[in-house]
């Protein structure tokens, strides 16, 4: 599986994503600068976590206007898998590749902690190695992960099986609507999630629950 990681000014999980991808796929991903106009031919594009443009104006807003995003959109339309983690999820909602918006955490504070997640949907390129309904633990680390969408959109996401990850009961760290932690696009080739699967691929760091996101992609895309 060939992959690319897009680097925006002040992305800061780009290296973490690259390390996880290399560890899981055996291939170094291509690092693509935000000012470039084209992403090479890859199976997976990752928009990493961080504070692109300092999170100034709104998280992900300015990154969503950067030059490379046009090609991310074009490739997503053609069905290339796109994974947006944390700030990457914020960028995806700002570009319109995913519906809704990520607002300030309900308690107004940045929150870093491992959280329980239930797998709501295993019918996707990102989650097929998980069992539907199982609970896993990924860390979250964000100040604006409070997912918002109007009721009609939320109903539609749920009805179409596009809620991929939900915070386990009592563990919603940010006030997110219907405990939503990660969602899929209509064509199911774009996933955005606030928790960090790339930080739980190495047993030395206390967990490997994130590995199966990458295993799912390898099974689907290789």
């Amino acid at each position: 599986m060939k992959s690319a990681v897009v680097v925006f000014p002040a992305s800061n999980c780009d290296r973490d994503a690259a390390v996880a991808l290399e560890q899981m796929t055996g291939q170094k991903p291509v690092m693509v600068w935000h000012g470039d106009s084209e992403i090479p031919d890859v199976d997976l594009i990752v928009l990493p976590g961080g504070f692109s443009y300092g999170d100034y104006l709104r998280c992900g807003a300015m990154a969503s206007q950067s030059r490379i995003i046009r090609d991310v959109k074009a490739k997503a339309d053609k069905g290339v898998a796109v994974l947006g983690i944390c700030n990457g999820f914020q960028v995806l909602t700002e570009t319109g590749l995913l519906p809704g918006a990520l607002m300030r955490n309900a308690k107004l504070k940045f929150v870093c902690r491992p959280v329980g997640l239930t797998i709501e949907e295993s019918q996707s390129a990102f989650t097929r190695a998980y069992a539907k309904g199982e609970t896993v633990r990924f860390p979250v680390a964000h100040g604006e992960g409070n997912y918002f969408a109007d009721d009609a959109t939320l109903d539609r996401l749920e009805g179409e099986g596009r809620v991929a990850f939900r915070y386990a009961e009592g563990e919603n760290p940010n006030g997110s609507a219907r405990n939503i932690a990660g969602i899929l696009s209509e064509k199911r080739n774009v996933l955005g999630l606030m928790p960090h699967p790339e930080r739980v691929v190495d047993a030395a760091l206390g967990g490997t629950d994130g590995r199966r996101v990458f295993q799912s992609l390898i099974e689907t895309l290789s």
């Binding site: 104006l57 300015m62 206007q65 700002e94 519906p99 918006a101 918002f148 969408a149």
Partner: peptide
């Protein structure tokens, strides 16, 4: 429309 406001919210 393009940048300053996120018209979703």
């Amino acid at each position: 429309e393009k940048l300053l406001a996120n018209t979703v919210i």
